[in-house]
Design a protein around this nucleic acid. Structure first.
Length: 563
RNA sequence: GCACCAGUAGCUCAGUGGAUAGAGCAAUGGCCUCCGGAGCCAUGUGCGGAGGUUCGAUUCCUCUCUGGUGCACCA
């Protein structure tokens, strides 16, 4: 429709090419359904004429055309009143033929996404949930666009914190306690270390010494480390299973421990490495950044070193066209430094292929999350609580549906995921049980409910197969047209979400579709006697159901036929 | 101190260089003998402040205020 209007204007108005018009023309949906309208200000600027005159000229020049019911000039706006039936037909055939799923933007390209990446020996809490959920959604979105996506869980399984843990374990821990309580016991040891180290700084030196031993391959240190790591992974996998998520690789920082020497060599050869206060750094003052620390004064590596090693490893092995990092915004400087160092090593691709996708801080009742003060909520508890609340609601409202447990799981997990993906990721989040467990309005369950409602209607219609061969004249009421307009935005929404690395665009879209459907549902009865009317309306139900399913899938959320 | 991010309705948040800035929550009042009431409808003094660019700025630029985060041997 837009291109037809552009062609018409180009053909009939002097001094503008079709490209220029296409560039200028914006066609937002208007309140009067089925209309297109655009302001003439920018055209006026290009043509150096008064907007009102341009508008009148265009109206006069175009005259009567079959797909336009009317052209009206209102102030400096031109409103094109499109023929509703043709408009509907074009949208429905596009939707029904599933052009939505056929995007090939990423064909032949690989994207690495580094997300979740919890620190081994620490509990998986509400903060880790964000990177996991956002990363998973980006994986789905880019896969939908045809990219091959490599999901990497860059476990925090290397570094001085293991030196601390080893010190704590050897001083105050016991094998039985760790076997019995797993990560919880490791956390206790870690917390105790910090308390004691505050009083006695020599403990920190001892911890660093143990980490140096690890890097040198000390057998005792490594066997304790491996044990702690195994214990942690079991717990993390339990949470991932609950979320219905998986990774292609669990390649933690330790994976790169024999690859950091090469990084140091590269930097040395490039004469980028300088010594400062006993440590080896890359000076980034020319780029208004703090220096990037590469080797500590005891010669051991640091996270930047391992991140650099990981980038080169991934570039070599996956030849990514993008490598995406989903972490908290507090790590922004770190990634800016690391990416700059890669670039300084002569890799121009670092500029547009290395992407940090930051998200806002999670706080709890206004305070920072802190294990030590007990101000913490574990991911698993959140998920289980949501599931159990949903289960209770199902028991109350709809106790006769099949697979109640499986359904409660889908809806409950979906509620948590949706809650996390609904707002722009950069916004700080204040965790609240009340908000999370409220399932009215703009929430996952609302969208899921709409889906179940569609499913319920379709179950009652036994002779429907999707077709474009329907009577479009019966769909011209405002609610039906509004619904179709929403649905037809889907391809653009996916693209938009991918360009911004922003799943919330998809989440918002799913809400908009659900709202539009519920309005339609309340104003039009679907299962009516008249077969023409019924078929046309059922088509909308079918498309709504399909669109919601596809959209929620991009968020990592499963739909339930009944709830 | 320097840097980055955010500031839109009582609360949580969308949104756009253009027409009268929108949702949800909370509150109040409604919803047809009918497809699922986790729904629908009705009720709104709001873009932190000051300049600038523009025909037009909530959107872009500068300054400023407020909040958050970061600033080398943690990740």
């Amino acid at each position: 429709m837009k291109s037809k209007i552009v062609d018409l204007i180009a053909k009939n108005v002097e001094g503008l090419s079709a490209d220029e018009i296409n560039d200028i023309l914006e066609i937002p949906p208007k309140p009067e359904l089925g209309d297109f309208a655009f302001p003439c200000f920018r055209l006026a600027k290009t043509m150096r004429k008064a907007p009102q005159m341009i508008a009148s000229d265009i109206k006069e020049a175009i005259g009567d055309v079959d797909f336009l019911d009317d052209i009206q000039v209102q102030g400096a706006y031109i409103n094109f009143f499109v023929n509703k039936e043709l408009y509907l037909k074009s949208m429905i055939s596009a939707a029904i033929q599933d052009n939505f799923g056929q995007q090939t933007l990423g064909e032949g390209k690989t994207i690495c996404i580094d997300y979740s990446s919890p620190n081994v020996a620490k509990n998986f809490h509400v903060g880790h949930l964000r990177t996991t959920i956002i990363g998973n959604s980006l994986y789905k979105i880019f896969s939908k666009l045809g990219y091959k996506v490599v999901r990497i869980n860059h476990l925090g399984d290397w570094g001085t914190q293991f030196g601390k843990l080893i010190v704590a374990y050897k001083r105050w821990g016991s094998e039985e306690a760790v076997k019995k309580d797993g990560v919880a016991e490791l956390m206790k040891l870690y917390v105790r270390f910090h308390d004691e180290a505050a009083k006695d700084d020599s403990l920190n030196d001892e911890a660093r010494a143990w980490f140096v031993k690890m890097e040198q391959g000390d057998e005792e240190a490594l066997s304790i480390w491996q044990w702690f790591k195994d214990i942690s992974l079991i717990e993390y996998k339990r949470t991932y299973d609950l979320l219905g998520m998986d990774f292609d690789y669990y390649m933690g920082e330790s994976f790169y421990r024999d690859k950091t020497d090469d990084v140091v060599k590269k930097l040395t050869d490039a004469k980028l490495l300088t010594e400062s206060e006993g440590a080896k750094i890359v000076d980034l003052e020319a780029y208004d950044m703090a220096p990037c620390l590469i080797l500590k004064n005891d010669g051991s590596s640091i996270y930047a070193t391992r991140d650099l090693a990981a980038i080169f490893y991934r570039k070599e092995n996956y030849n990514f066209s993008k490598c995406i990092y989903v972490t908290g915004q507090e790590q922004k400087l770190h990634f800016a430094q690391v990416f700059k160092v890669v670039e300084l090593l002569g890799n121009e691709w670092a500029k547009d292929q290395l992407i940090h996708v930051p998200y806002g801080l999670v706080s709890l009742e206004g305070a920072k999350l802190s294990t030590r003060s007990g101000n913490i909520i574990y991911a698993e508890d959140i998920l289980l609580e949501a599931i159990s609340k949903i289960k209770a609601i199902i028991e109350e409202k709809n106790p006769n549906i099949p697979d109640k447990d499986a359904t409660a799981r889908k809806i409950g997990i979906g509620a948590v995921l949706f809650n996390d993906l609904y707002n722009q990721r950069i916004k700080d989040v204040s965790f609240s049980w009340d908000k999370l467990l409220n399932f009215d309005g703009e929430t996952g369950p609302y969208v899921q409910y709409t889906y179940a409602r569609c499913a319920s209607i379709l179950r009652k219609i036994d002779d429907y197969t999707p077709t474009t061969d329907i009577d479009y004249s019966v769909l011209t009421n405002p609610e039906a047209m509004e619904l179709l307009k929403e649905i037809s935005r889907f391809p653009k929404v996916i693209l938009d979400a991918s360009e911004k690395y922003e799943p919330s665009v998809v989440a918002r879209f799913s809400i908009a579709v659900a709202q539009a459907f519920n309005k339609f549902y309340n104003s039009c009865h679907v299962n009516v006697e008249d077969k023409n009317v019924r078929d046309a309306r059922v088509t909308l139900v079918y498309l709504t159901k399909k669109t919601i399913k596809d959209a929620l899938e991009l968020l990592g959320i499963e739909c339930a036929e009944q709830m």
